[in-house]
């Protein structure tokens, strides 16, 4: 089954992804892609873009364009969906592996505020936020899962928020979160005495 066709009317390629239909090439790509999601959300994003346009990055040619379809090896639509669902959940839960590692890393850097700790903290704050904002792009390939994709997204966001929470906890223990009374002391008024008094000796 052909996968990429140029739409004559719009001039854009229409992508129809066929899992496993061409044998090891496609599967190996997905496997390697899913394995790489474990290394962090930035890799996940990269992988997502690679999935969207695999020929661009990997140099792998989609087998559908070169090999004739083999009906015996093709999965049914239901199986395909099941597999997709499995991969979707894998992707949604993938950041959970980072929680412990991030926590350990943050614990190791100590509470001092210096040029070495601040980049780590900044990246640890930015990455979950960035991942949350890219969640739609990340899960676009699972759009045919309809109702379940939302759950995946929520799970993904939840785990990212948990990661963010770990980082913010670290920030608070470092004292760089304005969450205590003392952080707002500059906005507190210094009370002026209305009355005035002075004195002398007689």
């Amino acid at each position: 089954m052909s996968s990429n066709f140029k739409n004559n009317n719009t001039g854009a390629y229409t992508r129809q992804w066929s899992l496993g239909s061409t044998g090891s090439g496609s599967n190996s790509y997905i496997n390697s892609g899913s394995a790489s999601t474990g290394s962090g959300s930035s890799n996940t994003t990269q992988q997502a873009s690679m999935i969207n346009n695999p020929s661009k990055k990997s140099g792998l040619v989609p087998p559908a364009s070169t090999s004739p379809p083999m009906a015996a090896n093709q999965l049914t639509a239901a199986q395909s969906l099941e597999l997709k669902k499995k991969k979707g959940w894998e992707l949604a839960k993938s950041p959970a592996k980072n929680i412990l590692m991030t926590g350990f890393f943050l614990w190791m850097i100590g509470n001092g505020i210096n040029i070495f700790t601040m980049p780590v903290i900044i990246y640890a704050v930015i990455n979950p936020i960035k991942a949350i904002f890219q969640v739609n792009a990340m899960f676009s390939r699972f759009s045919d899962l309809k109702d379940q994709v939302m759950e995946m997204k929520m799970t993904y966001i939840g785990i990212q928020l948990l990661l963010l929470g770990v980082t913010l906890y670290k920030c608070s223990s470092m004292g760089i979160l304005p969450i205590t009374q003392s952080d707002w002391i500059s906005s507190l008024p210094i009370k002026k005495t209305i009355e005035f008094s002075s004195g002398s000796w007689v």
């Binding site: 209305i194 009355e195 005035f196 008094s197 002075s198 004195g199 002398s200 000796w201 007689v202």
Partner: peptide
């Protein structure tokens, strides 16, 4: 209303 003073008698 506001101006007060005190005298200390030694």
């Amino acid at each position: 209303n506001i101006v007060n003073y005190y005298l200390v008698n030694h």
